[in-house]
C-alpha cells in the first residue's frame, strides 16, 4: 500500500502480509536461516520507528529503542510462543520500551529542573510528539491540507491512522493490540477515524485523492 513496500523484492507470494512474513522470518531464524530476519528488519523498522516516535520518544532514544527491540527479538526467538503473533510482539515490545524511555526522560528532566541553578526560563523541552513539517515536505497544497486535517483528529485517531497507513490491512489487529485498542473494534475504530478525516478533507475543498 505504501511506496516503500512497492520497492521490496517480490519474494513474498501475493496475499502474504507483513505479519505473515514476520512469522516466517522467526520460524526460519529458529531453524538457523537468518536471511529472512534481515529482510524483516528492513521492512518492519519503519513501522517500529513510527510506533516508538508516536509515544513521544526523542530522536536519539527512539533509534536505540528500535535497535533494542530487534535485539530482544533474537534473544527471545526460542521463547516466543506464537510465531504468528510476532509482529504484535515486536510492536508491543517497542511500545513498552518507548514508554520506559519516556518515563526515564521525564524523571531525568525532573531531577534536572530541581537543581537550584537551573534557569526556570529555559525548561528542557519535552520531545516533540508531532514534529512540524517544513515547507519542503509539504510542497503540495493537497499534502498540507491532509496533514492539517489529520492534526484536527483526536490523538488516538492520529496515531492509529499513521500506523495503519504503514501496514497491510490484515495486520491491523496487531497494531490494535499494540496501541491498546480493544481487539475486534479496530476496523470500526479505524473506520471512524478515517471517516472523520475524510469529512474534514471534504470540507477543505474538492480534491482528487485517487
Amino acid at each position: 500500500m505504501t511506496g516503500s513496500r512497492e520497492a521490496l523484492p517480490d519474494v513474498d507470494g501475493p496475499g502474504l502480509t507483513l505479519g505473515d512474513r514476520a512469522a516466517i522470518a522467526l520460524t526460519e531464524y529458529r531453524e538457523g536461516n537468518h536471511q529472512a530476519l534481515g529482510e524483516l528488519v528492513r521492512e518492519a523498522t519503519p513501522l517500529l520507528w513510527h510506533t516508538v516516535r508516536a509515544q513521544g520518544v526523542d530522536h536519539d532514544a527512539a533509534e536505540d529503542v528500535v535497535q533494542s527491540t530487534w535485539v530482544a527479538l533474537v534473544r527471545h526467538a526460542d521463547s516466543i510462543a506464537e510465531p504468528k503473533a510476532v509482529l504484535k510482539w515486536l510492536l508491543v515490545t517497542a511500545k513498552r520500551a518507548a514508554w520506559e524511555a519516556v518515563r526515564k526522560h521525564r524523571d531525568d528532566e525532573k531531577r534536572r529542573t530541581e537543581l537550584p541553578d537551573d534557569s526556570p526560563e529555559h525548561p528542557m523541552a519535552l520531545p516533540a510528539k508531532d514534529p512540524l513539517p517544513d515547507d519542503e515536505v509539504l510542497r503540495e497544497e493537497r499534502d498540507r491540507i491532509l496533514w492539517m486535517s489529520l492534526q484536527k483528529l483526536p490523538g488516538r485517531c492520529q496515531e492509529l491512522l499513521r500506523l495503519v497507513s504503514l501496514a497491510d490491512r490484515p495486520d491491523y489487529r496487531y497494531i490494535s493490540a499494540a496501541i491498546g485498542m480493544p481487539m475486534g473494534s479496530i476496523g470500526s475504530t479505524r473506520g471512524r477515524c478515517l471517516a472523520k478525516l475524510r469529512t474534514i478533507l471534504d470540507e477543505q475543498g474538492d480534491f482528487s485523492w485517487a
Binding site: 520507528w49 515536505v137 491512522l161 497507513s165
Partner: peptide, 16 residues
C-alpha cells in the same frame, strides 16, 4: 488518502 498519509508520515519524520 492512506497511501498519501504513509508518504507524509515518512517524509515528516523519516526513519534514520
Amino acid at each position: 488518502v492512506l497511501t498519501r498519509l504513509a508518504q507524509l508520515v515518512d517524509a515528516v519524520d523519516p526513519v534514520p
